[in-house]
Design a protein around this nucleic acid. Structure first.
Lengths: 189, 189
DNA sequence: GCTTATAAGTCAGTATTTATGACTTAGATG
DNA sequence: CATCTAAGTCATAAATACTGACTTATAAGC
């Protein structure tokens, strides 16, 4: 076990939202139910969010893997291929099949790193920026509706929990991107 | 005066969490950045959550599709095959390839509906319940850690946003399951 | 300079998940 | 009885991912 021995009842009851009645009797049940509900909601939310851009992608002969690729190259311009592999957590071959067409069709550009010329730093071309933006807008509509409906404080909680679900490697990227945003400088990955 | 185009700033600024400084100059940028960060976090959170049970599934020759199936059959016992198709939003053939082995190997049971005997109502066997529970516990660990770290109010916000991201069809299921929970009665789908 | 290590690209072969479309069987329903 | 519906099935194909081996170019240590 890890540092959090949370088998069933011994946990701190610190996450109870007041939205359930019935305290006392089924406390354990309610706690389990809360997590199952979270699974349900994550499933539905992701299903509906990822379905949204599919039509546009399909028109171009692309799929979700291409979208992920465009998203991350857009997020971290001049990213190394190896870093993209780390983020996507797929194999080099899987990436090649996706990245190849994006490069051939001029959505993604490669430039040799100047400090290390083995590296192929990835950026979006104008065409790539345009496509990524279209895809982004589609998902943003869904997210914006959700944010509006849920309200500001909820959004903060949303982010806190998502961050909590993310392992160290992902958190480093998130922190790094926030640092880039704050300081305007690109920090090492 | 301002160097940012005015037509882009006319949105309602009602979801701003106070976690960013720098108001005024890059308001539009911050609002877009918020959604992009949400995409990042959803990607990482789902990547790490879905990776967690993969090893156990792989031991049994199953994949994530089998997990989804077990999850939903466990969530809504006596569910019709057609309802499962609606939830998973896949084709009958895709489901068959996943559901078939689960039935053959005794994880999922079928019983004919008594009001309509064309229906095959799905439930988990004891074996299925046991497997689903193991898978659940793995994901619960991640979720529990996240909930603990984020705190109770954050969890409520998390749920509110996820619900906001979900389309009508999914919301109906969520509402229905809450109703089942509250009243103990199974309501129609 | 030579050796070793690294970044990226590539090839061959395979597995998984999903899709489309056509069809069958059983049972409900008018 | 005719028709609709729930489920299961077959054939085919696409997208996404995997393993393992190999090449090329470049960097870095000795």
């Amino acid at each position: 076990m890890q540092d959090h021995p949370q088998h069933l009842t011994t946990n701190k009851p610190d996450m109870g939202s007041p939205s359930h009645g019935a305290a006392g009797a089924g406390l354990l049940f309610l706690r389990e139910e809360e997590f199952r509900t979270a699974q349900d909601m994550l499933f539905f939310a992701m299903r509906d969010l990822t379905n949204a851009p599919d039509a546009l992608l399909a028109e171009l002969g692309f799929g979700r893997a291409h979208h992920r690729c465009l998203h991350w190259v857009g997020r971290r311009p001049d990213m190394k291929v190896g870093d993209l592999l780390d983020i996507l957590a797929i194999t080099k071959q899987s990436l090649a099949r996706v990245l190849g067409p994006l490069i051939e069709q001029g959505y993604v550009l490669q430039v040799k790193g100047k400090s290390d010329r083995r590296q192929r730093l990835l950026t979006l071309s104008e065409k790539g920026v345009a496509l990524e933006r279209k895809l982004f807008e589609i998902q943003r509509e869904r997210l914006a509706a959700a944010y509006r409906e849920a309200g500001g404080p909820a959004v903060d909680g949303f982010r806190r929990v998502l961050r909590g679900m993310t392992r160290e490697q992902g958190r480093k990227y998130l922190d790094d991107m926030e640092a880039v945003r704050a300081k305007g400088s690109r920090s090492p990955v």
